[in-house]
């Protein structure tokens, strides 16, 4: 019997302890294979003001490009201690940090591989639907061939590409609107 979808609603300002504390911002325990990364996401509204009551979730493959999920049936290793999911709320400066490992490349349905990327969900007061976006890594040679970036106007691709700062942290500002509005995906 067909059923109608449950509509989305905002997370509101008062999501709290339970849905935050139960998850690490540190995704990869010691011994998990791969290049260690520190990632800092920040959230901004259409005026550029910081959003201190937002929530980020990330979802990524392991260093071999394997997702810890039953629908990824490829014969690639899974890492004990790494499930690829992270969740963190923004702080009073609008930022959230994750420590993880660099994901490997995953296939594209029409063939070929995608550039390494992390899938990001954004929730906040005033955001009625989950906003989905991606984080890529500046300087990766695979970016030029990435089939998803090719779907995006070239002038807007930079909104998806994190830059590494002098201290080694990968930073990506996410703008809900304005001149630097992030590319969000209908996924």
């Amino acid at each position: 019997m067909s059923r109608a979808l449950t509509p989305s609603q905002t997370i509101g300002p008062f999501y709290f302890g339970t849905i935050i504390n139960a998850y690490r911002q540190d995704l990869a325990s010691q011994g998990v294979a791969g290049e260690r990364l520190q990632i800092e996401l920040s959230l901004h509204d259409a005026d550029g003001a910081i959003v201190p009551d937002g929530l980020f979730e990330i979802w990524q493959a392991n260093s071999h490009g394997r997702y810890d999920h039953p629908d990824d049936r490829r014969n690639l290793p899974l890492d004990p201690g790494f499930d690829g999911f992270g969740r963190a709320s923004t702080d009073t400066t609008g930022r959230a940090t994750f420590s993880t490992i660099k994901p490997g490349r995953v296939p594209w349905p029409a063939g070929g591989l995608q550039a390494p990327h992390i899938n990001v969900s954004v929730f906040a007061r005033g955001v009625l639907n989950r906003l989905a976006t991606r984080l890529y890594f500046e300087g990766d040679p695979e970016l030029a061939e990435d089939p998803v970036l090719k779907l995006v106007e070239s002038t807007r691709r930079a909104t998806l590409i994190a830059k590494r700062d002098a201290s080694g942290i990968w930073r990506l500002p996410i703008h809900l609107g304005g001149a630097h509005e992030t590319v969000f995906f209908d996924c």
Binding site: T10, D45, Q114, V127, L128, E181, F185, D186
Partner: peptide
């Protein structure tokens, strides 16, 4: 609160790859 927090541009339609059909 949606006034300054709603993206103004349509979301880019993304074909489903392993990144979208897997999940936490």
């Amino acid at each position: 609160s949606t006034a300054r927090r709603a993206p103004s541009r349509p979301a880019v339609v993304l074909p489903h790859s392993l990144s979208e059909i897997t999940g936490p």
